[in-house]
Design a protein around this nucleic acid. Structure first.
Length: 486
RNA sequence: CGGGGUGUGGCUCAGUCCGGUAGAGCGCUGCGUUCGGGUCGCAGAGGUCCCCGGUUCGAAUCCGGGCACCCCGACCA
């Protein structure tokens, strides 16, 4: 940092900017343990708002919350072959407890499929016990080589949904429904519009039959896998003997799904909306939507404070999350900068002059181009309008992100050369044809550092279906979206 | 696991080449003054110079070993 005040601009060094924003907005801080972090109240407040919104959507669609234990017998993880291959290097294992070596080591969960389906096996006998639709909010641990605040930490918070169904069709439907919930959540709450689609074989979750994901485009034009939903087939059911008697009386293995989003979403939020002044939090997720800064002058102080409290309660009554910053040891200007860094959508200033006129000063975290930084409006109007203003802001953030995603998406690319050029020219998503051969993925990745983010869902596909594979070898069997990614 | 960088008051760093008993700015505390975009003044507190060992009369500085963290790559939500 050049000095204590300004952030490194995004254009200069995006990842330094990111780290500075996260720390200076007080979202999180490094902990003494390598790769793990403390989520501070401002960051955790955002997470709580995310949880609340998602939890409601899960419950509306029939899911219930439960909690499964942190420690999982190592042998469980080892049962599903691909699963263990996917996770082996990043497992943290407990071998000692109570001062003694354990008979069998326990793994700190990297994800809970194994323990959960082993329990489902115990609870399910008949098709009448299905479906099971459960979710848990939990922490998990993956000993990553390289970590970054929120984007990849050794320990992180997430929700993992795990369902069991009588038929493949029903499970697949569940997988896609959740994908859609994730997508809506990202659009409507984070204002971070992803493209959705199917993961290629090499990018899918270890142990899944098919993985779907939401891929969001960050301001540096790198893609962030922001949520995944997996159709697990009967892979885990077979390993954990999750069987049921069907309507026809036969014994069958259940069909499973699992799906999750994590605190990584907060990283996505930062990289979607932040600017060179700091964080910008979409109103629906902001722990504080309006901060009131009293302008304290001599004997008017108590009058001003009284007024701010009055406005605070009026805003609260209107359903707005509001906070008064009444500190008397810092000047108003300092507070402005601080709250802007934290990304609070609206600031309201109330001083003696306002009280005289019955007005307030309003400042928006993002000022539309050409508009003045502050507007002076009557108090009644400010209070009445605030819920709408916040929703407008929310919509604006989303629309800007949709526009940015589209502007940075290149379609109809035919060759690896063109793909390379597009990426070097700063493109985000690049759409091409693909013959389905993993060696093409390898080759492109080696040349361009881009990977197949997904085989896009129908509505994200190009109007003109590609004919040839980007490699030049053969027909395209599917369109794919490439990007460099986190 | 490779490449690069950094470890010195709370933070950002100077001092290290050339050894001599530790500094700046910001922050913090107190008092006063200000308060509508990073107020100002005065006074003050605060440091095992990452750790261990060595060289030396003397080490933040030189030598050896270790550790931690950050950034960039290979692997991953």
């Amino acid at each position: 940092m050049a000095d204590n005040k300004n952030l490194t601009p995004r254009a200069e060094d995006f990842s330094t900017w990111y780290n500075e924003v996260v720390q200076r907005a007080e979202l999180a801080d490094y902990s003494p343990v390598r790769g793990s972090m403390v989520i501070r109240p401002w960051g955790y407040g955002i997470w709580e708002n995310m949880q609340r919104a998602l939890d409601e959507m899960f419950k509306e669609t029939g899911h219930e919350n439960a909690y499964f234990p942190l420690l999982i017998p190592l042998s469980f993880i080892e049962k599903e072959k691909e699963h263990i291959e996917g996770f082996a290097p990043e497992l943290a294992v407990v071998t000692k407890a109570g001062g003694k070596e354990l008979e069998e080591p326990y793994v700190i969960r990297p994800t809970s499929e194994t323990i959960i389906y082993s329990m489902y096996a115990k609870w399910v006998q008949s098709y009448r016990d299905l479906p099971i639709l459960m979710n848990q909010w939990a922490n998990v641990m993956r000993w990553e080589m390289r970590t970054r605040l929120f984007l990849r930490t050794a320990e992180f918070l997430w929700q993992e949904g795990h369902t069991a169904h009588a038929t493949a069709g029903e499970a697949e439907e569940e997988t896609l429904m959740i994908l859609d919930i994730y997508r809506k959540f990202m659009e409507d709450w984070i204002g971070m519009p992803p493209i959705t689609g199917l993961k290629s074989e090499s990018e899918k979750f270890a142990g899944a039959v098919r993985s779907y994901s939401c891929e969001a485009l960050m301001q540096d034009n790198k893609a962030l896998q922001a949520g995944t939903s997996h159709f697990l087939g009967q892979n885990f059911a077979r390993q954990f003997d999750l069987k049921f008697q069907s309507e026809g009386g036969q014994e069958e293995y259940a069909w499973n799904t699992s799906w999750g989003v994590s605190t990584r979403l907060i990283g996505g939020l930062v990289m979607t909306h932040g600017d060179d002044k700091g964080l910008i939090v979409p109103p629906r997720l902001s722990p504080t939507q309006v901060v009131i800064v009293p302008i304290l002058k001599g004997e008017d102080s108590s009058l001003v404070l009284e007024k701010t409290k009055e406005v605070e309660s009026r805003l609260k009554a209107a359903g707005v999350r509001v906070k008064i910053d009444a500190r008397d040891n810092v000047s108003p200007g300092v507070k402005y900068y601080e709250w802007e860094r934290k990304g609070v959508p609206y600031r309201m200033e109330i001083g003696p002059k306002d009280i005289e006129k019955g007005s307030v000063a309003l400042a928006r975290r993002v000022v539309p181009s050409g508009a003045k930084r502050k507007s002076f409006v009557m108090e009644d109007q400010a209070v009445a309008e605030m819920p709408n203003l916040l929703e407008e802001f929310q919509t604006e953030l989303r629309d800007a992100s949709v526009a940015r995603r589209e502007e940075n998406t290149v379609r109809g690319v035919r060759t690896i050369n063109e793909l390379q050029e597009a990426l070097d020219g700063g493109a985000g998503f690049v759409f091409t044809g693909w013959n389905g051969d993993p060696s093409v993925e390898e080759e492109v990745k080696g040349l361009t550092k881009a990977t197949i983010r997904c085989l896009p869902s129908e509505e994200f596909r190009s109007p003109q279906t590609p004919v040839k594979c980007v490699s030049g070898a053969g027909e395209s069997v599917t369109e794919v979206a490439w990007a460099r990614s986190y």
